[in-house]
Protein backbone atom coordinates (compact mmCIF):
# COMPACT_ATOMS: atom_id res chain seq x y z
CA UNK A 1 0.00 0.00 0.00
CA UNK A 2 1.34 3.43 -0.86
CA UNK A 3 2.06 6.04 1.77
CA UNK A 4 -0.73 8.27 0.46
CA UNK A 5 -3.26 5.49 1.00
CA UNK A 6 -2.56 5.41 4.72
CA UNK A 7 -3.07 9.07 5.52
CA UNK A 8 -5.66 9.93 8.12
CA UNK A 9 -7.66 13.10 8.68
CA UNK A 10 -9.16 13.47 12.14
CA UNK A 11 -11.95 16.05 12.28
CA UNK A 12 -12.86 17.46 15.68
CA UNK A 13 -16.29 19.10 15.74
CA UNK A 14 -17.35 19.15 19.39
CA UNK A 15 -16.44 21.40 22.31
CA UNK A 16 -13.75 20.45 24.81
CA UNK A 17 -15.94 19.49 27.78
CA UNK A 18 -18.93 17.75 26.15
CA UNK A 19 -18.45 14.24 27.49
CA UNK A 20 -15.34 12.24 26.64
CA UNK A 21 -15.33 12.86 22.88
CA UNK A 22 -12.49 15.40 22.85
CA UNK A 23 -10.19 13.22 24.95
CA UNK A 24 -10.97 10.13 22.93
CA UNK A 25 -10.27 12.01 19.70
CA UNK A 26 -6.88 13.04 21.08
CA UNK A 27 -6.15 9.43 22.08
CA UNK A 28 -6.93 8.27 18.55
CA UNK A 29 -4.62 10.94 17.06
CA UNK A 30 -1.76 10.07 19.41
CA UNK A 31 -2.13 6.36 18.68
CA UNK A 32 -2.05 6.96 14.92
CA UNK A 33 1.05 9.14 15.40
CA UNK A 34 2.70 6.46 17.54
CA UNK A 35 2.13 4.00 14.67
CA UNK A 36 3.73 6.57 12.35
CA UNK A 37 0.55 6.92 10.33
CA UNK A 38 0.50 10.30 8.56
CA UNK A 39 -2.19 12.18 10.46
CA UNK A 40 -3.75 15.61 9.96
CA UNK A 41 -6.03 17.22 12.51
CA UNK A 42 -8.82 19.63 11.65
CA UNK A 43 -10.79 21.61 14.21
CA UNK A 44 -14.15 22.90 13.00
CA UNK A 45 -17.61 23.85 14.28
CA UNK A 46 -17.58 23.89 18.12
CA UNK A 47 -14.33 21.93 17.96
CA UNK A 48 -12.49 25.26 17.62
CA UNK A 49 -13.29 25.95 21.29
CA UNK A 50 -10.75 23.22 22.12
CA UNK A 51 -8.03 25.63 21.02
CA UNK A 52 -9.12 28.68 22.97
CA UNK A 53 -6.66 30.04 25.57
CA UNK A 54 -7.13 30.26 29.34
CA UNK A 55 -9.24 27.12 29.64
CA UNK A 56 -9.97 26.13 33.21
CA UNK A 57 -12.04 23.01 33.75
CA UNK A 58 -11.51 22.91 37.51
CA UNK A 59 -15.02 24.16 38.33
CA UNK A 60 -16.49 21.11 36.57
CA UNK A 61 -13.73 18.72 37.70
CA UNK A 62 -12.42 18.39 34.16
CA UNK A 63 -8.77 18.26 33.15
CA UNK A 64 -7.60 21.18 31.05
CA UNK A 65 -7.89 19.94 27.48
CA UNK A 66 -5.61 22.62 26.05
CA UNK A 67 -2.82 21.26 28.25
CA UNK A 68 -3.42 17.76 26.87
CA UNK A 69 -3.48 19.02 23.27
CA UNK A 70 -0.12 20.67 23.90
CA UNK A 71 1.56 17.24 23.64
CA UNK A 72 0.73 17.02 19.91
CA UNK A 73 3.99 18.63 18.69
CA UNK A 74 5.94 16.12 20.82
CA UNK A 75 4.26 13.33 18.84
CA UNK A 76 5.21 15.13 15.59
CA UNK A 77 1.59 15.93 14.85
CA UNK A 78 2.27 19.22 13.13
CA UNK A 79 -0.41 19.17 10.43
CA UNK A 80 -3.01 20.98 12.49
CA UNK A 81 -5.75 22.98 10.77
CA UNK A 82 -8.63 25.10 11.91
CA UNK A 83 -11.63 26.03 9.81
CA UNK A 84 -11.75 29.79 9.28
CA UNK A 85 -15.54 30.21 9.14
CA UNK A 86 -15.92 28.34 12.43
CA UNK A 87 -13.49 30.78 14.05
CA UNK A 88 -15.16 33.85 12.54
CA UNK A 89 -18.65 32.76 13.57
CA UNK A 90 -17.47 32.43 17.16
CA UNK A 91 -15.37 35.63 17.14
CA UNK A 92 -12.17 33.72 17.89
CA UNK A 93 -8.95 35.16 16.54
CA UNK A 94 -6.58 32.68 14.82
CA UNK A 95 -3.69 34.37 16.67
CA UNK A 96 -5.17 33.51 20.07
CA UNK A 97 -5.19 29.73 19.62
CA UNK A 98 -3.21 27.50 21.96
CA UNK A 99 -1.68 25.44 19.13
CA UNK A 100 -0.10 26.61 15.89
CA UNK A 101 -3.01 25.74 13.59
CA UNK A 102 -3.27 26.70 9.94
CA UNK A 103 -6.57 28.47 9.17
CA UNK A 104 -8.24 26.87 6.15
CA UNK A 105 -11.33 27.52 4.08
CA UNK A 106 -12.61 27.06 0.55
CA UNK A 107 -10.35 25.00 -1.69
CA UNK A 108 -7.77 24.34 1.03
CA UNK A 109 -10.50 22.82 3.19
CA UNK A 110 -11.78 20.71 0.34
CA UNK A 111 -8.23 19.53 -0.44
CA UNK A 112 -7.80 18.30 3.13
CA UNK A 113 -10.75 15.96 2.72
CA UNK A 114 -9.72 14.92 -0.79
CA UNK A 115 -6.04 14.29 -0.04
CA UNK A 116 -6.42 12.03 2.98
CA UNK A 117 -7.29 8.37 2.51
CA UNK A 118 -9.31 8.01 5.68
CA UNK A 119 -11.44 10.20 7.88
CA UNK A 120 -12.33 9.87 11.53
CA UNK A 121 -14.73 12.43 12.90
CA UNK A 122 -15.23 13.23 16.57
Amino acid sequence: MQEADKSLLVVVRHGPYQGQLAREALDAVLTAAAFEQPVSLLFMDDGVFQLTPNQDGSAIDAKNLATMLAVLPMYDVDRVYVELDSLNLRAISPESLTLPATPVGGHALRDLFVNNAHLLSF
Binding site: M1, D27, A28, F35, Q37, S121
Partner: peptide
Protein backbone atom coordinates in the same frame (compact mmCIF):
# COMPACT_ATOMS: atom_id res chain seq x y z
CA UNK B 1 -6.59 1.95 20.05
CA UNK B 2 -3.79 0.45 17.98
CA UNK B 3 -6.50 -1.84 16.58
CA UNK B 4 -8.27 1.24 15.22
CA UNK B 5 -5.09 2.53 13.62
CA UNK B 6 -4.35 -0.94 12.25
CA UNK B 7 -7.85 -1.13 10.76
CA UNK B 8 -7.46 2.22 9.00
CA UNK B 9 -4.03 1.20 7.67
CA UNK B 10 -5.30 -2.08 6.27
CA UNK B 11 -8.70 -1.21 4.84
CA UNK B 12 -9.86 0.46 1.65
CA UNK B 13 -12.59 2.36 3.49
CA UNK B 14 -13.28 3.38 7.07
CA UNK B 15 -16.96 3.95 7.79
CA UNK B 16 -17.93 5.78 10.99
Amino acid sequence: LGQLTDATLNSDRVIT
